[in-house]
Amino acid sequence: MPKAKQPAVMALFRTPQALLDAVRTVRERGYRGIDALTPYPVHGLPEALGLKVSWMPRITKTFFFVGAGLGFYFEYWAMAVTWPINVAGKPYFSIPAFMPVTFECGILTTGILTFLTLFAADRLRPKPSFKALDPRITNDRFALLIPTGFEGPAPATRLLEEMGALEVRELHV
């Protein structure tokens, strides 16, 4: 369900350092709900933005144990319960032989379900085309987005220009 679009301003910076300084200043001035878009992961940016630790790793860990457990149980059920086959005189329930498949089941389940969960959580879905905010963000520019719900775009624009933004633009995201 798409949310209603919010008014915001976007500023482009030349360096990651300029972006980091701008993020800190903007947060000190009390702006919340800001977001940064960069061409590559910038070290220290999540801390500067005040992002909390993601819950994805915990979900991933859960998926792994569920997948590996189900895989292991399936092997036990198939090899020792429904159709026991004597393989080279080994016990029907042979833990070492089950380990590789258990591991693969865990990895496969984790990979697929984490991928799907991530897309669902971010409300991403296949679309014929995406309209990029600015193509330069994928190359050599570092963008900062500030929502300007109550006070209008003017104060935020002024602040960002003081911070040395190359360009400030109003938009709806």
Partner: peptide, 12 residues
């Protein structure tokens, strides 16, 4: 370690 163990255990 496990690879070495598994192969030797399996071939027996």
């Amino acid at each position: 370690g496990f690879e070495q163990y598994l192969l030797i255990w399996y071939a027996n």
